[in-house]
Amino acid sequence: MFKKRIEKYKIQALSIFLFLFIWQLIAQYVINDPLLLPSIADIIRAFFKLSANIPIDIGVSLLHLSTGLLFALLVGIPLGALMGWYKNADRFFNPLIEMLRPIPPLAWIPFAIIWFGLSDYSAGFIIFIGALFPILTNTYTGFRNTSNLLVEAAKVLGCKKNKDLIRHVVLPSSFPYILSGIRISIGIGWMCVVAAEMFGLDNYGMDNVGVGNMLWQYYALHMMDRVALYMFILATIGIAIDRILKYIEARLLKWQSHTNIAQI
């Protein structure tokens, strides 16, 4: 068991190490131009130079993410639930959602700036748009997929009112969908951070901070090693959030049976 685990990490580490190694070789000996392709060594140097600022950048970006996400959950979960439970709510909201969904979050940037100014709220708004639809559709799907048999079983046991059925049957049965909806929303919200911070914002009165913001700032100065560094930070934080959420999900959903196929 333990040996297998090491085996697994060995292969994963090898993959990353090979990638970085080949990158370093290509950057150093083939391209040899830090503007076109900064080398790993350049990026590591940049990291040590900027390491004092990076935690603040991450913190500010996470705050933007949280603002957008909070509103996405506040709107998405109740609306998805309403549409999943009431046929007429579904009919009413569905065309609106189908119309808004294809608009890329980035297309909302001009209106976000007009409505909220160059503020943290406009960043939050872009992230809100990106995060809204996954949680909305997942909640809806969870409600729709609730087994009628379980609803009837609950009715037979005296759980008859809509509000009780939703609370005691439909919500818990939709919980896996809602949790993975939240995870997907956070993922997409994080992807929107770069765009949302594209223009200088208040950044809670700290001016030049934020992962997305700094990425654009260093691009303007053509310091591509630093741009690449911020790309790495985006990836690392993205993975970390996803891992943490998957862990929480597994803990909360320990009642689910796992009957997926095994990889060979």
């Binding site: 048999l149 379980l150 009837e152 079983a153 609950a154 046991l157 005296g158 759980c159 009780d164 005691h168 049957v169 818990p172 049965s173 919980f175 009642w255 689910q256 049976s257």
Partner: peptide, 18 residues
């Protein structure tokens, strides 16, 4: 037709809770 998110004990108490 058991509620999969409830333990066996919690399934039996469901009607009593209601």
């Amino acid at each position: 037709s058991l509620f999969p998110w409830r333990t066996i004990f919690e399934n039996v108490t469901f009607g009593l809770e209601m």
